[in-house]
Amino acid sequence: MASSTSKGELIMDTTVNSGRRKLLRVGGTSLLSATAVALLAGCERMASQAQAQTNPAGDVQILNVALGLEHEAISAYSIAAGSGLVSKAVLPVAVTFQGHHKEHRDALIATIRKLGGTPVAAKPDAEVAKALNAASLKNQTDVLRLAQRLERGAANAYLGVIPSFSDKGLAQVSAKLASDETGHWIVLSQALGDALSPKAFYVG
C-alpha cells in the first residue's frame, strides 16, 4: 500500500474529487450558520440580538476547544505529508482534507473574535507529533489509521458538544463541521478497506 496505487487509493481519490467539487460550490464562511454568518459579516445588530439570548463566553470556550482540534488536525496532515510514508496518489487527498481543516480553523477564529474571545494558538508540529506518537508510524496504513481515528474522534466531538451551545446557530455550525469530519472518516475507512457499519447511528 505504501508504494503503489492501490484500489483503496483510487476509491479515495475519486471520492475526494467528487466531494471537492461540491465543497467548491460552497466555500469559505458559507459553511457557517445564519448567526455565525451574521457575526462574520459584521452585522453587529443581528449578532447582538443573537447574543442577547445566549452565553457567548461559554460558547467561546467550546469554540476554542474546537479550534484546538482543528489546529491539531492541520498539524497531523502536515506531519503525515512530511513523513515520506504517504504515496503520491494519497498525498493530494491529505492536502485536500488539510485544506478543509484550515477553512474550519479560519471560520472558528473569526467567530471567536467576533464573540469577544481570544483564539487559542496552534502548538508546534513537533509537539503534536510527540502527543500523537508519530514516531510509531511505519507505513502508509499506519498513517491512514491515525488520520481515520482522529477524523472519527473529531466528528464525534463536534456532535457531542452540540447540546452545550447556548446559540442554536453555533450548534448547527458544529453539526456541519461534524459532517465534514465524517466525510473524511468515511473516505479513509474505504481506503483502508473497512466495512461500513451494518447498524445505523454509527457516528456519535
Binding site: V65, G68, L69, L132, N133, R149, G153, N156, A157
Partner: peptide, 17 residues
C-alpha cells in the same frame, strides 16, 4: 471511549484535553 473521546484525549499524552 475510542469513538467519542479520542478526538481530544489520549491515554498517555496531553492533547486538546
Amino acid at each position: 471511549w475510542e469513538a467519542r473521546c479520542t478526538g481530544c484525549h489520549s491515554l498517555e499524552a496531553n492533547r486538546i484535553g
